[in-house]
Amino acid sequence: MLRTVATKTLFDQRRALLGWAMSLLALVGMYAAIWPSIKNQPSMNDFLNQMPEAFRALFAMSGADMSTPVGYVQVELLSFMGPMLLLIYTVTSGASAVAGEEDRHTLDLLLANPVGRGRVLVEKLLAMVAGAVLLAAVLAVALVVEGAPAGMDLPVGKVVAAMAHLCLLSLVFGALAAALGAATGHVGAARGIPAVVAVAAYVLNGLGGVVDWLKPVRQLSPFYQYAGHDPLRNGLSWTSAGIALATVAVLTVAAVIAFRRRDVAA
């Protein structure tokens, strides 16, 4: 595990990742356990329909319908909870890639070895990608395996597609956190700025569907790339996935350039 920067980073995260995985399993298990009592409650749908349209656009996705498993998972997990949890993991992980190590003063120790700054950064990002893929996979397995006994039947292929998009969404903000950390060396900025940007992007995507003047810019939101095409119903969108991957790639290149140009704090 200690042979490369990437595997050492995952080794450092081993307990945290286990904790994350257990929590996600428990969360989905709880959703599945509640499902039988929700599905026959028309009042839940009435409640959703009574919300102001702008409000509903924020908390529920298109065609939110709590009486079907797909609609239920969209409202409960995909619209808010899932993205929030995965973003917390990737933003924390991305921010600690360079800035966290610098903050703990271990960057001198690491860079005194024949490993370039670019390689350190890319390997740490690879560890973050592996962690995010693991957590998204745990969610996908949990939804399918824990949902079935409760009658919460979901199309496997669409679940995988939705989790892939969720993973990509979290990586966009994780890469932003890593880039800010690599450019500034400040953990606070590397965590705080992506959090603020994520909230803004979330609101932009939600309100962009109902507020006319926001419609043209709605597609700029990574949340639109994530959920605009409704992956749990329509599967993978190669265009949206491509945009997310390109964003991650551009942020990574910018991070490497910025990191190579600056002084490392002692």
Binding site: D12, D108, L109, A112, N113, P114, A266
Partner: peptide, 14 residues
């Protein structure tokens, strides 16, 4: 860098 041994002024460890 592989041919240099470096000890920082206030060395930090993991």
């Amino acid at each position: 860098r592989g041919r240099i041994g470096y000890l920082a002024g206030e060395p930090a460890l993991y």
